[in-house]
Design a protein around this nucleic acid. Structure first.
Lengths: 336, 336
DNA sequence: CTGAAAGCGCTTACAG
DNA sequence: CTGAAAGCGCTTACAG
């Protein structure tokens, strides 16, 4: 049987109210009494029941984080950033993998709300109208990760994907490349997809580069997905000197496929990734990519969320754009 | 204001008891009444308060998972396995990064207990006597990940590290290698460290290979740690043809350093990792390693934990050893 | 089949 | 400075 507050009260010969005051460090308690209570706590090994406390004070100090897949190093970093900030402010985090599945997302949001999470971070590549409504209506506070909100009701933390793609493409074009392919997401046509596409196409247009949707391949964004897209691309007969992949895993897969099909990277084909995951400069060739401050996205989002959950916190709604950075590495080569 | 059970009761013109029965799918409710309640629930948008429920039924359907660092792909996989099983059985998971820091571990365990987690999975590279006591005494159920318990009080899920190391070393020795170095953990001398060391040394002894502790280097188990250890090793003047690294990140770092210092891998030096993290066969050279079924370790541990938490569950305490597998890849070469 | 009531373990306004 | 008591939102034995 767990020991509860009345057991401590009995042991120390005081009321439960007094024990509660000591536990919660409420000042107006006599020093002597406090000592007695503290001793009783130690003796009984009392640990407050946070569930009971939460029910009473209407606050759980628990945050939900909905994330597509913790196994994707991009999201892993975000979670770590969020968790670290949680630790500082004495919150905990309930982790939920949603796999980009709207059904899982609905269910997940539901239990996070039922478990009375003070706040929820929603991370994804897009925000459907339905999910947006659900999040706005949710009784928990909400902050978005990696996507913005256009309703003025929610806050978000993200990079400017259009600019990032634009800058990457511009750099590569400066290096002499003219013929591109895009290795993109199989299903998703959501926010990030559109933004990046806009950025790439803007750069292409500005440089009079021919491009149309037939140059976009779409598969799972993974090592094998990247591999498979490169295979298709090389077999398609379409000419290209450089590939932009939606993330670094895809780029690495693409790169390996090219090598196995007898193309040298970057001599024959250049490959770019996105995100700058932790291993990007340890592969050979090193991967050219756009770095996102993933840890910071998680940390900042969580800090904003905590502010929203604290009584006197900052309640301003805003989309925070964090800086990205283009890294040109060995997987891309100048064309003479 | 969140709507609560009395609001629904009022709306449907029944008692809260009846609403509760409908919500919890307790049979003996008149169909008509049930309909009315269901309608009222829909109309009011009622969502049960899981915190209140937990307080009453003394069960939170929440599991804690203490893990050194979610950012380490080895642990990431474990968490994913655990979370997937949680989903199936309607549990949620509170994630806590402990960074191998005993103080963080103590604190973390404490809040997980205070938040009344039904169960806790403790993952680490060692189990200190203090932590063992704390876990045994904890009111929550506990299952260990990656380490065994020798008290007969706790269950664990892990591979046999000694055998794994022994088998790996034996394979490599068969390939003609005689001079080894070990790149191990900087601080830790715990369980896994000892087991692996035993395994390696057993293989060395059986093959009359000279080895002493001067051939063990110790640093952070990371890309840069591996890099730095290889640098030291090559500068030390000690002769070696193969390095066993404690994990794959370290191996990759070591490998890159060797290359940069003008040694070819595997022609001049062979490098082995451990764990078979998801990228191990996508690096060049591919990394020779011992695969652990990380996802399964998480999944099995969670399944055992859930069993412990369910009234009629299996309560047998046991250490479950899951199979490992040696993968010989390009980072190792035969010596003629 | 349904409801009134007790109780889960806390916190906190109120009174003293 | 301290305690008695109400109440957080549920569930469930008990009675009808």
């Amino acid at each position: 049987m767990r020991v509860k507050i009345v057991d401590v009260a009995r042991e120390a010969n005081v009321s439960v109210a007094t024990v509660s005051r000591v536990v919660n460090n409420i000042p107006l308690v006599n020093e002597e009494t406090k000592e007695r209570v503290l001793e009783a706590i130690k003796k009984t090994g009392y640990k407050p029941n946070a569930i009971a406390r939460s029910l009473k004070i209407q606050k759980t100090n628990t945050m939900g984080i909905m994330i597509p897949d913790i196994t994707n190093p991009y999201y892993t970093e975000i979670v770590r950033g969020a968790e670290d900030v949680c630790g500082i402010y004495h919150y905990n985090i309930i982790l939920s993998n949603t796999d980009f599945d709207p059904e899982k997302e609905r269910k997940s949001l539901n239990v996070l709300v039922e478990k009375q999470c003070d706040g929820i971070i929603y991370v994804g590549k897009d925000l459907s109208a339905e999910m947006q409504t659900e999040l706005i209506d949710a009784p928990s506070e909400v902050v978005l990760g990696c996507i913005p909100d256009d309703s003025g009701m929610l806050s978000g933390v993200l990079i400017n994907n259009e600019t990032a793609a634009y800058e990457l493409a511009t750099e590569i074009i400066k290096m002499g490349h003219q013929k591109f392919m895009l290795f993109f997401d199989e299903l998703e046509e959501g926010y990030i997809y559109q933004e990046r596409k806009k950025g790439f196409i803007k750069a292409f247009k500005e440089n009079n580069i021919d491009f149309d949707d037939s140059r976009i391949l779409r598969e799972k964004l993974s090592l094998t997905g990247g591999y498979s897209m490169m295979e298709q691309a090389l077999n398609s007969g379409v000419e290209f000197t450089c590939v932009f992949c939606f993330n670094d895993q895809t780029a690495l897969g693409a790169l390996r496929c090219a090598e196995e099909m007898g193309k040298k990277v970057p001599d024959d084909i250049s490959v770019c990734g996105f995100n700058n995951f932790w291993i990007a400069e340890w592969t050979r060739p090193q991967i050219t990519t756009v770095a996102q401050p993933m840890y910071d996205i998680g940390a900042i989002a969580m800090r904003m969320l905590i502010k929203l959950c604290e009584k006197d916190g900052d309640r301003a709604v805003k989309n925070v754009y964090v800086p990205h950075e283009v890294y040109i590495r060995d997987s891309v080569q100048k064309i003479k």
